Amino acid sequence: MQIIGLCRFSYPAIGGFQVDHDTIDQRIAYLYGDDRLEERFRLFEAVALPCLRAQTDPDFELIIVVGDQLPRRHLDRLHDLIADLPQARIHAEPPRPQREVMKEILNRARRDPDAPCIQFRSDDDDAVAIDYIARLRRAARDSDALIRQHKAVAFDWNKGYIAEYGPHGIQMAETFRPFDVAGLGMWVRGGCKLTIMNFAHNKINRFMPSISFDDPRMFIRGHNGWNDSRQKTPRKIDLDPIGFEHAEIFRDRFAVDLETVARVFGRA
Rank of each mutant, 00 (worst) to 15 (best):
W157F: 10
L75Y: 03
Q55W: 03
L194A: 14
N227C: 14
I3Q: 12
K232T: 15
A145T: 15
L37G: 03
Y32C: 06
G166A: 08
D228V: 04
F179A: 08
I242N: 05
D240V: 15
D180K: 05
F213S: 09
L194Q: 13
K151N: 15
V19W: 04
G15V: 02
F120H: 01
K203S: 13
L136R: 02
G33Q: 09
P71W: 00
D80V: 06
A109C: 07
E45Y: 02
D22A: 11
F17T: 03
S229W: 08
R141M: 11
Q149N: 06
I130R: 10
F213V: 10
D180Y: 09
T233M: 15
I237A: 14
C7W: 07
C192W: 04
D22C: 06
R40E: 01
M197E: 11
F199W: 12
K159D: 11
E93Y: 09
H223Q: 13
R141Q: 13
D112C: 05
F207Q: 11
R221M: 06
R111M: 05
V19S: 05
A46F: 02
R72S: 05
A134M: 04
H223R: 12
G243E: 09
L62H: 09
F213Y: 15
P234C: 12
G5A: 14
D80P: 03
G33W: 04
K232F: 07
A152V: 08
R177I: 13
H201L: 10
H201K: 09
A92G: 14
S229R: 07
L52A: 01
A46N: 00
Y32L: 07
S143W: 02
L52T: 01
D131N: 10
A29H: 08
G183Y: 00
R221C: 06
P12G: 03
D20F: 08
E45H: 04
V101M: 08
L239P: 13
E164C: 09
R217I: 05
V153Y: 11
V256R: 01
N158A: 12
R135F: 02
A129Y: 04
R217Y: 12
E39D: 12
N205R: 13
Q55H: 04
R53H: 01
S10T: 00
S229H: 09
D84S: 15
K232A: 13
H150S: 10
D126T: 11
D25L: 03
L70K: 00
G225V: 02
N158V: 08
L136H: 04
A139Q: 03
D124H: 07
L106F: 06
R217P: 10
G5E: 08
A83L: 12
I14G: 02
